[in-house]
Each structure stands twice: as structure tokens, then as C-alpha cells.
Design a protein around this nucleic acid. Structure first.
Lengths: 241, 241
DNA sequence: ACCGTACGTTTACGACGTATATGTACACTT
DNA sequence: AAGTGTACATATACGTCGTAAACGTACGGT
């Protein structure tokens, strides 16, 4: 905070005062969430604070409390924003006729959204799953509804459908989280062993891992996601059919 | 902090002073991690701070920095502790002869460890996966080595093995994170609809989810984990065999 | 008897989340 | 046109956090 603190003789040209609702227009939940999302995308989760988000908006931290009940709610809002983006994407391309293709479409778009906001993805594990089902943001519930509905087209009984639902969402989350961050230590090093930081690894005791590391360090990408998804779906539909 | 702050006339019976290495014996990395783990198990991740962990040990916060480079390192240490526990458990029961059974054993023990420390589990997503492969704690690398080795017994080629490795670990993580926390809103309410908080849900727009919610709110448990695992393994081995 | 070093404390700083109180401008009434 | 309620943002303050830097004390080796 500089010196011009709104001194009594004050009102230097653009010095905001109480009630002056910001020079950048009014706040809104959307503006707050979008700003927080940009901040996290740019500088990571640990850079997100009420104070910094407020500063980004040209506003004091306490002003945000009208649009998010607290920091936890702000984090939940980021999850919400991600699912809103997913819904947009899904609405942009046509629904596939086959249930299996449709699940692949959903998975691929989810992967794409997470890839676009890698710093936010961990919140899916820490925040979204920690909230009881019925309290999750509407966009999340609509996603669940969509997956359940598509799975219903496969003609499974209720019990198996729920199993498959859990399997698909669990797989999706696990894969996305694992695949998102490069497992690479130093991206600029040309020698693969050094690039992966393998010289730090007691390779003698971990021969299998040493051999697999280069392959492992490559992203599985959407292809790996789809392969696992197919494996899962095969497993559940064969048991039922 | 009470009044007795080591006043000059001081040395009331057990008043610790600089250099008095604590009344509870020396510190060690194991003691620090174990204390932090207990604290998190008892009061949750957000209760973990250097200061509180220190207090729990009868020591100032700064004393911990000799055993963990900072709070981040402390969190990583918790992951390490979890995998150490997993290794103990795996060593306690005999290895299965069949590769498939052995994978089930690993999965089940991993699930059990996570269940024993539900508050720590999110760290597997946020901390462990964020660290480049080669920098992960040794216990984690040994776990990866073990899974890769067991998968090798299935006779898959290198590419497929890595795929399957990713699938298994992803599935494990996703399932554990999703299944750990009850999806229940208010556990004491007898009416299922209220217990699940379904009255908060716009049920009209989410009919499929409303029907599935009771089943969904029940834990899948180890059985669900195993079912998905088998489905995955079937998918990968059939493609190769 | 001396000293280096391992171990823990003290002090301090800036950032954080948020409870509480306060101020201002605009939409309404009348 | 004057008055008023309320929506919106600020101001101030408190306790907690992570951690850098400097300091003290005890102990093993000489």
C-alpha cells in the first residue's frame, strides 16, 4: 500500500473511497470466479487468496464475501466454473447416438477442460469429492445425471449401472490427475535419463521402473484415457450381458 | 503461552529453556511425521501447521525445520508415511502366486491404508502426483516397481504394461478418493431422502440421479474396487493375448 | 580445558482469512 | 423534492500462519 491512504486533505484524483463502487464497474459472482480462475491458471493454487483476487479486481478482499461465503466457497466456485465450461463444450458438439461413443465424448471433453486448467484439477479431488452428493454445484450434478443417463442406454441393471458410474468417474478423475502433470523433472535436458531425473533414483533397486520410466514419462493423452474407458466398459457390460 | 516465560529469577520446575532439548527426548524425522499424521487423522488437514505440530511434540515450530525442509516437505512426508504403512501391510501377508491375485492384494491393502487415514488421502492427488516421478519418496517408487513387476508376469509388451500401470494406479486413486468420504449429508437423519440432502436437489431436472442417489451414497467398498480392477485387467490382457 | 557442531529457542516480518463496524450512492417512496 | 432503506464496498482489527536470521546451550572429541 503506497502512501496515499486517503488522507484527510485527500481525494487525490482516482483515490477510491468507501461507497465508490470501484472504477471497473460492479462486481458479480461470474466476474469474481473468472478472475480467480485466471489467477490460478496463471500462478497456481497457492497464489489464490482473497486479498489477491480482490486486488486483481481493483477491490478490497472483503468485497468478495458478498459473492462467495469465504475462501472455501471460492474454491468450490472454481470447480463450478470448470463444470460450466464442460457443459459449454458438450453443448457445442452434437451428441453421439451410441452410448459408448457418447461416454467417450464426455470423457474426452472432461479431459480437455482439465488440461486447460491443470492447476484447478486437484480441486476435483480435494473439494468436489469432499462435498456430499446433494450439495455439489448444479453443473456437477447435471454432469452426473448425464453420465447416468447415458449408462442407462447400455441396458444394465441399477446396481451395475451405479458400479459402472463409479468406475467411469473414478477412472476419469484418476487418469486426469495422473496424466496432467508431466512426470518430467527438467524439460530442457536432452539426455532422457537426466531429463527425467533418473540419476536421482536408486536404479539398482528399481530396475523395472528404470526401464519403464521413459515410456511412463510420456503422457498417455486422450488415447490412454479412451483405452482404459473401453476396458472398463467391456468389463461391466460383459458381466451383465 | 502462560505467564511463566522464564523470568530472570526463573527456572520454575519444568520450564524449558534454549538448549534444553525438550522434556520428551530428542526429535527425529519419524517422530515428527508420526505426530503430524496423528494430528491430521484427528483434526483434518487444515489443522496441520508447523506451530501446532511443534506444540504436539512439546517443541517450538522452528525445531521441525531440521527434519522437514518446510511445510510442503512435511506434507510430502505424510505421503511417505502412508506408503511406509502400505509396505508394512504388504510384508505382513504372503505374496499371492498369481499376478492377478497379487494385484488385488495390493489394491486392497492400498484401499485399507487410505481408509485408515482418510484425511491424508487427498494428498496423494495434490502432492504425490505433482512431484516428478524420480523425485517421489522411495516408498512410493518401490510401490510403482512392485506394480510394474507384477504386471510383467501377465506377459504384456512394454507399451501395454505401461498403459495398464497407468490404468491400475489411476483407477485405484480415483476410486479411493471417491469412495472414502461418505456422500451423506446428515448421517443421523432416518429418512433416506433427508439423510442424503436430496430435498436440496432440484429433483425434477435430475430424475436419474434422484433414483440412483441411495445406491450411490452407499460405499462401493473393496468389492467395487476389485470389480473395476478386474474389468480393467480383462480389457488390457484380452487386447494383448 | 577448549572448541566445534548438533539441536532447539527467540524474535521478527509479511501475508493470510475473516468478524465487525462504517461509509456512500442509488432506487424507492411520499 | 426530500427522505429513507438497502445494496455494495471499504476500514480496521485480531489471531494464525510459514519461515528467515540470530542466538543459546549441551555434548563429544581433542
Amino acid at each position: 500500500m503506497p502512501i496515499e491512504k486517503d488522507s484527510p486533505q485527500g481525494r487525490r484524483a482516482p483515490a477510491r473511497r468507501a461507497g465508490d463502487h470501484g472504477r471497473y464497474g460492479r462486481l458479480s459472482r461470474e466476474r469474481v470466479l473468472a478472475t480467480a480462475l485466471r489467477l490460478v491458471d496463471r500462478e497456481g493454487l497457492s497464489a489464490l487468496s482473497m486479498r489477491r483476487t480482490g486486488a486483481e479486481l481493483g477491490v478490497e478482499a472483503m468485497a468478495l464475501y458478498r459473492y462467495a461465503a469465504g475462501k472455501d466457497a471460492l474454491l468450490d466456485g472454481l470447480v463450478e466454473a470448470l463444470y460450466a465450461e464442460l457443459e459449454e463444450r458438450l453443448a457445442a458438439s452434437p451428441e453421439s447416438p451410441g452410448w459408448r461413443d457418447e461416454l467417450h465424448r464426455i470423457a474426452a471433453e472432461t479431459y480437455a477442460v482439465a488440461l486447460a486448467h491443470p492447476n484447478v484439477a486437484p480441486l476435483l479431488a480435494t473439494r468436489m469429492l469432499a462435498v456430499p452428493l446433494a450439495r455439489r454445484p448444479l453443473a456437477v450434478l447435471r454432469d452426473h445425471e448425464r453420465v447416468l443417463t447415458v449408462l442407462g442406454r447400455a441396458g444394465l441393471d441399477e446396481e451395475t449401472t451405479v458400479m459402472a458410474f463409479r468406475a467411469v468417474t473414478g477412472w476419469l478423475l484418476g487418469y486426469v490427475l495422473g496424466d496432467l502433470r508431466a512426470m518430467v523433472d527438467n524439460p530442457d535436458e536432452p539426455d532422457p535419463a537426466f531429463r527425467l531425473g533418473l540419476h536421482r533414483m536408486p536404479a539398482r533397486e528399481l530396475p523395472r521402473l528404470r526401464d519403464a520410466a521413459p515410456t511412463l514419462a510420456r503422457h498417455g493423452g486422450p488415447a490412454g484415457l479412451a483405452a482404459g474407458l473401453d476396458a472398463l466398459l467391456d468389463g461391466f457390460t460383459r458381466g451383465a450381458a
